[in-house]
Amino acid sequence: MARYARRRSADHQTSAAELRARPHEWQHVHTYRATYGAASVAREIRIGGFGGTYGPPGSFEARTQTVDDGTAVYARYVGEDGIWAHALRSLFVPERRPEDEAT
């Protein structure tokens, strides 16, 4: 039974920093053997996951693409002020209300 060679893990801190340095440019983040793994990572990037590394929600776009050795994740930084970013923040970041601050 053949074994797969061990792959290095994705470095999301570095990827997010590189994406922010070159906004609106699609860049390769990592390639995963399983499509579901790549899809999960792409979703986390879009909603600002990985401990806020790709935050706030909506400031990054992500997509997957089938390649010879698995499924690649590509992402780009689109900024924090776009309508998409605002819409996602409204879903994932609780809104602060004046009465919350009174307590």
Results as ranks from 00 to 15, higher is better:
residue 2 A to M: 05
residue 2 A to F: 05
residue 4 Y to E: 05
residue 4 Y to Q: 06
residue 5 A to P: 11
residue 6 R to M: 09
residue 6 R to Q: 14
residue 7 R to I: 01
residue 7 R to P: 00
residue 9 S to D: 08
residue 11 D to G: 06
residue 12 H to D: 05
residue 13 Q to E: 10
residue 14 T to K: 10
residue 14 T to L: 09
residue 15 S to C: 13
residue 16 A to G: 09
residue 19 L to M: 11
residue 19 L to P: 03
residue 22 R to M: 08
residue 24 H to F: 09
residue 25 E to M: 08
residue 27 Q to N: 14
residue 29 V to K: 00
residue 32 Y to C: 04
residue 34 A to E: 10
residue 34 A to F: 08
residue 35 T to Q: 12
residue 36 Y to I: 13
residue 38 A to Y: 00
residue 39 A to R: 13
residue 39 A to Q: 12
residue 40 S to M: 11
residue 40 S to N: 13
residue 44 E to Y: 11
residue 45 I to G: 04
residue 46 R to N: 04
residue 49 G to H: 02
residue 50 F to M: 06
residue 50 F to P: 00
residue 50 F to Q: 01
residue 51 G to M: 00
residue 52 G to F: 07
residue 53 T to Q: 07
residue 54 Y to E: 02
residue 55 G to L: 01
residue 55 G to D: 02
residue 56 P to Y: 04
residue 57 P to A: 10
residue 57 P to E: 00
residue 59 S to M: 03
residue 61 E to W: 05
residue 61 E to G: 04
residue 62 A to Y: 03
residue 64 T to D: 02
residue 64 T to N: 04
residue 67 V to C: 15
residue 67 V to E: 14
residue 68 D to K: 10
residue 69 D to E: 13
residue 71 T to E: 03
residue 71 T to R: 03
residue 72 A to G: 13
residue 73 V to E: 02
residue 74 Y to G: 08
residue 77 Y to T: 06
residue 80 E to A: 15
residue 81 D to F: 15
residue 82 G to E: 07
residue 85 A to Q: 12
residue 88 L to H: 04
residue 88 L to G: 05
residue 88 L to E: 04
residue 91 L to E: 09
residue 94 P to C: 02
residue 95 E to A: 12
residue 96 R to Y: 01
residue 99 E to V: 09
residue 100 D to H: 12
residue 101 E to T: 09
residue 102 A to H: 05
residue 102 A to P: 01
residue 103 T to N: 10
